[in-house]
Design a binder for these strands. Structure first.
Length: 925
DNA sequence: CCTCTGCTGAGAGGA
């Protein structure tokens, strides 16, 4: 039987006499998650006491194949020969993490912190792996090499390599594979599968095997190994995949490692140490070792989040015993018996240890960073790791949900009806399935998703890309799978990139920059003030702030104040001054919006936000602009400036390096290619929706930076509650008010509509830009106001439909909202001019069933506007819940309207809160 | 109780 639950007590390791002789054992008490409230005792025998050494109260423990026994009238449990003991099984460790951990735990930490930079061996390795996959799929070697080298054009170009020399080297590596395959190893009976994604809920592991041959893992290594044996960490990697295959009821007993630099195929097989393929047996002992190693790693990660430890204050840093006593969860290297002298990470290791004053086996180089900077790294490291845990929770949905929960959840499409599996050119597959009824999900075209036969864990599953999501679902994969289910595949890329951004900014960052970030130095400005924008002083000030900043400038743009227009003018001005500019934002939509404004020389939304609506004469020519992003991420009309990865290395690199303006999401700023670029100025839009580390990813690439945002609108989207919730923009606006300017004239809302938001959020400073804007009224939208029902003739109105909240819906309110929309349309308002906003997706769906106009959540409405906005509040009784407590969300909802705003909600519920009471009084006036 | 977008998928090397 399997036992699982949080640990409530860990006993000491003792020796016991058994029929097999003296054996070590250790008792652990857990509170089983199912059944009785009483803790149960489990005795871990033999090598599992190693895991007991790493266990702590509060950790989750799983013991498989435990055996029940009786001791002094109580049922106790113990491990058996088949048992596995797993700590924190919900923490999904990457196989590559285990690989580096067995070399040295500190290497695991360093890889995570600093990321793997753009370098040639790694890029080449990736290409060889792709060629390997192609060969297994039957693609011609020459065609594959040419194609895969071309695909890596941009990265190779940045590294200064030319296609022919890379192709030569790849060909030599591939020849070793090809030769091995041809040697007769690939017999008729062989069944191959390339790039197999594996997730193991039992062992808390995930990863992707290069290939399976007859169910046995095959790992490709593009390096050389002249030893008779495979490298230990390589064996461990392959063994991890073997372990995870147990989840599929397969028990591989052999692993193969293919070292492609070992090209001496002509050597005698019997003596030939240089054969590329090395086999090894995967025995139970090795698998148990893998699990124990994973437990060590998972335990260390648990300590990061659950033991705050001393602040690294510079005094308690040197722990003589070699333990990272004051920084739990930060490996020192003493855990391993690796030799630092031979380690390629030795220098990095010593520098990081020196900077952060960490204990490390390799020793320290250089002076420690100031305590406040070390504290900063520590704080964000923890916050980001907490966010990683939340990502792991999303993986859990792949196996944990009951069918009913799954039907409610929108992270997967289930009960698909497979239609066809078609082989494409290059051996890939196109899977098609019919979607039942009106199933909706978070999946989007272009997303990477897990296609499966209905069971993504134990069944047949392939990672692929969604091509189409109409009535039929189309997915492209490497191997065919009966497409019955499609799941969102959670990605840790965002958290990984936040971590490297903190590393780059603090450990490698410029001192002057850090002085400003840590409030040790006031930002300065120099140079002449010029007139860039007539008729709007705040916008003009904002551009001047951006052009004269020697450190940073902050532009606070409330709703409708012409943020995008100002950004475009600021970039033009900077480019005119000879600066190279990075334009970044959190979402692809915001990047493309700002880029569009820059390219057509006006503001977005047809000049909304521009004082005169004139095109600028400084417009940046298209050939100087490059958009970095994926094909599906980038808007259609920006594809012409999107840089392709594929192509001649020299051409691609020149295209990027010669661009005066590079536009990308902050996530893309953390990519290996952009981390190699540098800019004079980084301008970040939607900065108030960015976590501090994400902002760092963009601004670390530039000497100076400009942040544009509005901290009175929506904050960053994060899963965990911690330091990531506050944006750098908000922090800096508070620290350096004199480095910021607020755009105070808005081009959207009527006087009546903007009054509440202006008073509540902007200290009354927000005002209509012109008399025409102020005078906007519902009368502008209809021939005769008398055609509207009396309550809708007002520009702002509150309607109480006397409904009842049911979960996240309110049916009666939804009906009333639909009736209001109908009344506007009947009076002659264009349905395209009406938008409906609700706090919950359930209510959005409820209203959407009753009307054809745009209905969406607040979050999705941010950044756009409509002449008529109807807001459904849903709540009755009490206004509890964070969705109402964060008033910024209400600010966004109310400020989408230009001419007419209708609030639909329960008057009594709204009056239960002072803020909403003021809103009701404003609407009723 | 909830809202939500990024990621080319992860992982690719070196005595």
């Amino acid at each position: 039987m399997n036992l699982r639950g949080p640990i409530v007590d860990v006993g000491g390791v003792r020796s016991a006499s058994t029929q097999y002789g003296e054996r070590d054992c250790c008792s652990i008490e857990i509170r089983p998650e199912d059944g009785a409230a009483d803790p149960v005792s489990i005795t871990l025998w033999g090598d599992w006491t190693h895991t007991a050494d790493h266990a702590a109260i509060g950790m989750e423990l799983l013991v498989t194949d435990a055996e029940a026994g009786e001791y002094r009238g109580e049922t106790t449990y113990s491990t058996t020969g088949d048992s596995a003991v797993v700590l924190e099984p919900d923490f999904l460790v990457d196989v590559t993490g285990i690989r580096s951990w067995v070399q040295c735990p500190r290497m695991y930490y360093l890889n995570k912190l600093s990321g793997i930079p753009l370098n040639y061996p790694v890029v080449k390795g990736t290409i060889v792996h792709e060629v390997f996959g192609d060969l297994l799929r039957g693609v011609d070697l020459e065609a594959s090499v040419a194609d895969r080298v071309a695909e890596a054009g941009l990265e190779l170009g940045i590294l200064g390599y030319d296609a022919a020399e890379v192709a030569d080297e790849v060909r030599r590596n591939a020849a070793a594979i090809d030769g091995w395959l041809a040697q007769g190893t690939l017999t008729d009976g062989d069944d191959w599968r390339s790039e197999y994604t594996l997730i193991s809920p039992t062992y808390g592991l995930k990863g992707r095997a290069d290939a399976l041959r007859r169910g046995m893992p095959v790992e490709l290594k593009t390096g050389k190994n002249t030893n008779r044996e495979p490298r230990f960490q390589d064996k461990i990697q392959a063994a991890c995949y073997g372990l995870m295959l147990a989840e599929h009821d397969q028990q591989p007993d052999t692993g193969t490692l293919l070292y492609t630099k070992n090209t001496a195929l002509d050597r005698n097989e019997a003596t030939g140490d240089l054969s590329p393929a090395k086999e090894f047996s995967i025995g139970d002992g090795l698998l148990d070792f893998v699990i124990r190693t994973r437990n060590e790693l998972a335990a260390m990660e648990w300590h990061v989040l659950n033991e705050p430890g001393d602040q690294p204050d510079g005094q308690s840093g040197d722990q003589p015993d070699g333990q990272s006593g004051d920084q739990p969860g930060i490996p020192t290297g003493h855990e391993a018996d690796a030799t630092c002298q031979y380690c390629f990470e030795q220098d990095t290791c010593m520098v990081v240890s020196g900077r952060l004053n960490q204990e490390s086996k390799a020793g320290q180089i250089g002076a420690p960073l100031p305590a406040e900077e070390r504290e900063y790294v520590d704080r964000f490291y923890r916050a980001i790791e907490a966010e990683r845990r939340e990502t792991h929770a999303e993986y859990r949905k792949l196996w944990e949900q009951s069918p009913a929960e799954r039907a409610d959840d929108d992270r997967a499409l289930i009960d698909l009806d497979p239609v066809s599996e078609t082989e494409l050119e290059g051996g890939r597959w196109r899977l098609e399935a019919r979607k039942p009824g009106n199933a909706v999900s978070k999946l989007r075209e272009g997303d990477v998703a897990l296609a499966s036969d209905g069971d993504p864990i134990a069944g047949d599953a392939e990672l692929g890309r969604i091509r189409s999501l109409g009535d039929t679902v189309v997915v492209e994969t490497d191997e065919p799978v009966p497409l019955r289910r499609l799941d969102v595949y959670p990605s840790e890329i965002s958290v990984d990139r936040m971590l490297t951004a903190v590393h780059d900014a603090i450990l490698k960052g410029d001192e002057r920059r850090k002085d400003v970030l840590f409030d040790r130095r006031e930002p300065t400005f120099s140079g002449p003030e010029r007139e860039w924008i007539a008729n709007n002083d705040a916008q003009n000030d904002a551009v001047n702030l951006a052009t004269t900043a020697e450190d940073l400038a902050l532009i606070h743009g409330p709703p409708g104040t012409g943020k995008t227009y100002t950004i475009a003018r600021a970039i033009e001005a900077l480019v005119a001054d000879g600066d190279r500019v990075l334009l970044a934002a959190f979402t692809n939509r915001a990047v493309d919006n700002a880029l569009a404004a820059l390219r057509d020389g006006t503001g977005a939304e047809g000049g909304d936000g521009s004082p005169d609506g004139d095109a600028s004469d400084l417009a940046v020519p298209d050939e100087d602009v490059v958009r970095v992003g994926t094909e599906t991420g980038v808007r259609g009309d920006m594809q012409d400036v999107r840089i392709r990865q594929r192509g001649d290395p020299t051409d691609r690199a020149r295209e990027l390096e010669s661009a005066g303006v590079v536009a990308a999401t902050t996530a893309a700023c953390g990519s290996r290619v952009l981390r190699e670029q540098s800019f004079d100025v980084a301008l970040v839009d939607e900065a108030s929706q960015l976590t501090e580390p994400s902002t760092l990813a963009a601004i670390s690439l530039a000497d100076r930076f400009v942040l544009v945002g509005d901290h009175e609108q929506l904050p960053p989207v994060v899963r965990a509650e911690n330091d990531l919730q506050r944006s750098l923009f908000e922090r800096l606006v508070e620290t350096y008010p004199e480095a910021s300017v607020m755009l105070d004239r808005q081009y959207r809302m009527s006087q009546r509509i903007q009054a509440f938001a202006s008073r509540e959020f902007y200290g009354g400073a927000l005002r209509p830009a012109t008399g025409d804007v102020a005078a906007r009224s519902v009368a502008d939208l209809v021939d005769d106001v008398a055609d509207l029902p009396p309550e809708l003739r007002r520009d702002v109105t509150l309607i109480d439909p006397d409904g009842t909240r049911d979960g996240n819906r309110n049916v009666r309110e939804a009906e009333r909202v639909a009736a209001i929309v109908d009344a506007y349309v009947a009076a002659g308002v264009d349905p395209d001019d009406i938008g409906v906003i609700a706090p919950f997706r359930a209510q959005v769906a409820e209203i959407g069933r009753r009307t054809d106009v745009t209905v969406d959540t607040v979050d999705r409405f941010q950044g756009s506007s409509k002449p008529v906005i109807v807001v459904s509040f849903v709540a009755t009784g009490e206004l509890d819940g964070p969705i109402f407590e964060d008033h910024r969300r209400t600010n966004v909802a109310l400020t989408r309207a230009k001419q007419a705003l209708v609030l639909v909600g329960d008057r009594a519920a709204l009056r239960s809160d002072p803020f909403y009471t003021r809103m009701v009084e404003w609407a009723d006036r």
